[in-house]
């Protein structure tokens, strides 16, 4: 009679553990934060994935010939805890998870002197002016950290 009890206990443990894990992740949101420098010096696009950003800006009549990613990081945002992303200008961008309402993450992205409040989505990127740097324009790019297919 030990086996049925053991299996029952394992089933209960699994049933309890799954929602616990889900609850633990409930207050955390992951986003990607890239720092990109655009300029008209040369025509290098590095990495090639920045072609998409180049086209997005071109569609808004903002044309730079060179696009270079300076840093890329995945941020795990916890409620009311700001995460800093250093910019090459010496400034620090602060990204914080303000709230999660009905499954939607509300973020604040502060790149002095501006502060942006946004709702995160499965699609779409936020490009924030990061100031001028080495004769070019810096951009802080906030994008969803989702695995393909989600």
């Amino acid at each position: 009679m030990v086996l049925p009890r053991l299996l029952g206990a394992m089933a209960c443990a699994a049933a309890l553990a799954f929602p616990l894990e889900a609850r633990a992740d409930g207050r955390k949101v992951e986003v990607m934060a890239d720092v990109v420098l655009s300029s008209n010096k040369g025509d290098k696009v590095d990495p090639p994935s920045l072609e998409e950003m180049k086209k997005t800006f071109a569609a808004k009549n903002i044309r730079f010939s060179s696009w270079q990613a300076l840093s890329q990081r995945k941020l795990t945002l916890e409620l009311k805890k700001a995460v800093e992303v250093p910019l090459p200008t010496g400034k620090k961008a602060r990204i914080s998870l303000e709230d999660i309402k009905e499954g939607v993450a509300h973020l604040r992205v502060a790149v002095p002197p501006a502060s942006t409040e946004l709702q995160l989505g499965r699609e779409g990127k936020l490009y924030v002016d990061g100031g001028q740097h080495e004769g070019g324009q810096l951009w802080l790019v906030i994008s969803p950290a989702l695995k393909p297919g989600k």
């Binding site: 939607v104 509300h106 942006t116 709702q119």
Partner: peptide
């Protein structure tokens, strides 16, 4: 994933110091 219920990103407000 938690926080991604919206299909698209939306900017609520932009303020400056």
């Amino acid at each position: 994933p938690e926080g991604y219920a919206r299909p698209q990103l939306a900017v609520d407000s932009v303020t400056t110091e």
